[in-house]
């Protein structure tokens, strides 16, 4: 690691710390009920999330997030593949997909409640519906942009259809699929919170909303902090996995640049 990189990492770490310290000091004497001192927020954070409500509220929310995200990715990749490789399917589904992805997922929640009730199924279903589209569209784009040369080689060597999909199309469209998945993850996170507005008041989003409506500002800020933290950590986790899976791509790009 060169010095420049070390400095940039240090700045990245220090700025949030400085901001938090500043928040802590500036809010210390706050009497405004909507902006309590950070000290109170941290106390409530500890009382609520470590670990009183961890099993009852944090885990169910995270469970819905990951199950919903996983199903969304599988469906998105499968449908994306099908639409990109079967022109008839694409012609049939494309308008519907464009129509559906325009609807804000939150608007679908009341309909989902009538269809599947208001349990976890509804929450997972709303995450799947919303998070599927980014992955699906990036899969379609990824496969369409596979280099014609690669396709030709596959054809010349008479790869079977399955081989062509798995060994040619999938690897070369993977970078785009993964960046679609990253967008899907963010969408899934937003819908996870929104889906907790109705139904049983269980989950981080539900608790934060309830705290807001009962004017328990410290609890509300503690919930917001936790949501931010989870969003941040899931993104880091995703990046780690991505760099692992796409290491060949990253190094080939580096070679390309060096050449």
């Amino acid at each position: 690691m060169n010095t420049r990189k070390i400095i940039s990492v240090a700045v990245g770490v220090l700025v949030p710390i400085a901001l938090l310290a500043w928040w802590y000091l500036a809010s210390a004497g706050s009497l405004n009920p909507f902006f309590p001192p950070l000290r109170d927020i941290v106390v409530r954070f500890k009382e609520l999330w470590l670990f009183d409500h961890f099993a009852t509220d944090v885990l169910p929310s995270l469970g819905n997030l990951f199950v919903g995200f996983a199903i969304a990715v599988i469906l998105g990749v499968a449908l994306g593949f099908a639409m990109a490789t079967v022109p008839v399917l694409n012609a049939m589904l494309s308008p519907v997909v464009q129509f559906l992805r325009g609807i804000p997922p939150v608007a679908l929640i009341p309909i989902l409640i009538t269809l599947v009730g208001f349990g976890n199924e509804m929450r997972v279903a709303s995450i799947v519906i919303a998070a599927m589209f980014p992955t699906m569209l990036s899969t379609i784009d990824g496969i369409r942009s596979v280099e014609p040369g690669l396709k030709d080689v596959g054809a010349v060597y008479r790869f079977s259809r399955g081989d062509r999909l798995l060994r040619v199309y999938l690897p070369s469209s993977l970078p785009q699929i993964v960046s679609g998945m990253q967008v899907s993850l963010q969408v899934a996170f937003i819908v996870m919170i929104a889906s907790e507005m109705l139904g049983s008041s269980q989950g981080i989003g539900a608790m934060t909303l309830l705290a807001q409506q009962s004017f328990m500002s410290a609890d509300m800020w503690a919930g917001i902090l936790l949501l931010g933290l989870i969003g941040f950590l899931t993104n880091i986790l995703f990046d780690l996995v991505k760099n692992r899976v796409l290491s060949w791509y990253v190094s080939s790009k580096r070679l390309e640049r060096a050449a």
């Binding site: 009341p110 409640i113 009538t114 208001f118 109705l198 139904g199 049983s200 008041s201």
Partner: peptide, 19 residues
């Protein structure tokens, strides 16, 4: 009591469906 948050329309429907 097991409380649920539902908007009035969903509540009416869920009541009819027995949810």
């Amino acid at each position: 009591i097991n409380w649920m948050v539902l908007d009035p329309n969903s509540a009416l429907q869920s009541l009819e469906q027995g949810r």
